[in-house]
């Protein structure tokens, strides 16, 4: 029987009055690389934050490595997070620490390794993302793409069981893109680590994922292997995968009629542009 790293069971989540997810259910099998794709604003980052226990759902259960992440105590949650890694969209490196210190941070906090051993491990991780030579630099001295590579090295520092990646391919040049996507794939296969990748990059995500979920308007509109999804005839899925502007998946954020906004129809709460008369 397949063990699941993550289980979402009828999870609903609202941000203010906006419904982000309604009765969302899916599983992430252990040791697999799972891609979660979907249009902007569909709640992919929110999904990762729910998985990490940073926010709580309004309803439903989220199991991470067999534990209900919203019912365990705060101390247990922090204990569980020691075997999770997360790459933030912004990198979220500690700005007062050097690249070396950033990658060494989880090792110093959670292991009893001596300084020399930590140095070896940090240099190995930095070498894998091509930034061993930048160990002495501060995050402010790196480009956005380089910061994300350092953040990736930090997320992998403790060789976690589960790594969540928020847009790992954004801002990378083609060479770095190839290296990083192969690195994510290798980490999954060599260390039997579960990878959850949230990305817009259909081609790259499909290339390294065993299983894909496509989200739109708070629900899963397609799931399966990359080959299965290509064969799927669902109009919403086809529109997203082929990048078509017109179709059942809305490109526009909910708004009143375009013409109404332009001419300034009165008594419309959502009127954005009012006429000057």
């Amino acid at each position: 029987m397949t063990r699941n790293s993550i289980v979402f069971d009828n999870v609903s989540y609202n941000f203010g009055k906006k419904e982000i997810f309604k009765n969302l259910s899916f599983e992430v099998p252990a040791g697999q690389t799972v891609g979660i794709m979907g249009p902007s604003g569909t709640g992919k980052t929110t999904l990762l934050r729910l998985m990490g226990g940073q926010i709580q759902p309004d309803n439903g259960t989220i199991l991470v490595e067999g534990k209900d992440i919203n019912k365990i105590k705060r101390a247990e949650l922090f204990e569980l997070r020691k075997c999770l890694g997360m790459l933030f969209q912004s990198g979220a490196l500690f700005s007062d620490l050097t690249v070396f210190e950033n990658v060494a941070f989880p090792l110093k906090e959670h292991t009893r390794l001596n300084g020399e051993m930590i140095r070896y491990l940090v240099l190995i991780k930095l070498n894998s993302v091509g930034l061993r030579g930048a160990a002495h630099l501060f995050p402010r001295e790196l480009s956005g793409g380089m910061q994300r590579r350092v953040a990736l090295a930090r997320a992998m520092a403790l060789d976690p069981k589960l790594i969540m990646y928020d847009e790992p391919f954004t801002g990378l040049d083609p060479i770095a893109l190839g290296v990083i996507s192969n690195l994510i794939k290798d980490v999954g296969s060599v260390y039997e680590c579960t990878n959850v990748i949230v990305s817009h990059d259909i081609e790259e995500t499909a290339r390294i994922s065993n299983l894909l979920y496509v989200l739109s308007e708070g629900e899963i509109i397609g799931q399966g292997s990359p080959q299965d999804l290509k064969k799927d005839d669902s109009p919403r899925l086809k529109q997203f995968l082929n990048g078509l502007p017109d179709g059942p998946v809305p490109f526009h954020y909910p708004a009143p009629e375009y013409l109404d906004s332009l001419i300034g129809v009165k008594n419309t709460k959502r009127t954005i542009i009012k006429r000057d008369d």
């Binding site: 940073q54 020691k82 999770l84 997360m86 912004s90 906090e109």
Partner: peptide, 18 residues
């Protein structure tokens, strides 16, 4: 405030450090 805005506090939480 800046650590919060740049997600440094969130990343620290996810590393398992309160």
């Amino acid at each position: 405030g800046l650590m919060k805005a740049t997600e440094q506090l969130a990343s620290m939480e996810m590393i398992g450090v309160d």
